[in-house]
């Protein structure tokens, strides 16, 4: 008789849990999609920072152009943010709530956009940038950018489009490659860029960034 009391308590607890848990599950299932608002709302969210037509935006940090970007590249980068192979606190927060199917849908959407380049780069070094982009700097072990990114800078699969990319963004990536993007060298293609980024001087980086920023 004495032993019956804890048993009763156990049954009561189990019953309460059974009642509570489905309720929680229910609220989550109903609440999350409503707050996410689906693909349209998520796209609007992306474009708040990356420009209303995906052309990029200059905030406190440069927000890269996503318009016309290779979907495989966008997906690979979002996964890199989630797995912290690419270090960026803002994009980690953004990316880690995205479902795999949302990730694919977003990447596919941006490929279809084609706004004019954001602009704003200095024009003086464009010719130098074009030469480096198309011919590389053999004496400094810098291959031609066009060899992988294409003559028009449109990219290919996991290799990103550079055409129309924000001047400040390209500079920030090429000058900070090791810090931001060198975390996943064993598992992704970002390692390819490490020696190239290292071998370019600041003014060469600026020239290449200016050149690609105005490619349509």
């Amino acid at each position: 008789m004495v032993a019956a009391r804890p048993n009763l308590r156990l049954i009561l607890q189990a019953t309460m849990l059974a009642v509570i848990f489905p309720a929680v599950g229910c609220a989550d299932e109903m609440g999350t999609p409503a707050r996410q608002g689906g693909l349209v709302a998520k796209l609007e969210y992306c474009k708040t920072c990356h420009g209303l037509s995906g052309q990029g935006y200059l905030g406190y940090f440069p927000m890269p152009r996503l318009a016309g970007q290779q979907p495989e590249y966008i997906e690979a980068q979002l996964r890199a943010f989630i797995e912290r192979r690419r270090t960026n606190p803002i994009m980690f927060n953004v990316a880690h709530v995205l479902s795999p199917s949302m990730l694919t849908a977003l990447a596919t959407h941006f490929r279809g956009l084609n706004p004019k380049p954001f602009g704003g780069a200095p024009r003086g070094s464009i010719a130098t940038g074009k030469k480096i982009y198309e011919e590389g700097l053999p004496e400094a072990n810098v291959p031609a950018c066009s060899a992988c990114h294409g003559m028009e800078g449109k990219g290919h699969h996991e290799i990103p489009r550079l055409a129309g990319q924000l001047y400040a963004y390209t500079i920030s990536q090429l000058t900070g490659w090791k810090k931001e993007r060198g975390q996943g060298s064993a598992v992704d293609t970002s390692a390819i860029m490490a020696p190239t980024a290292h071998n370019l001087t600041r003014s060469q980086v600026e020239a290449v960034a200016a050149y690609v920023s105005q490619l349509q």
Binding site: R35, Y45, G59, N93
Partner: peptide, 22 residues
Amino acid sequence: DGIPEANIVSCYACHGPNAEGV
């Protein structure tokens, strides 16, 4: 951080780490 689940963006991305603007 914003509230990514609710599509609320981080203010920090544009207004800076100390809300100093640029």
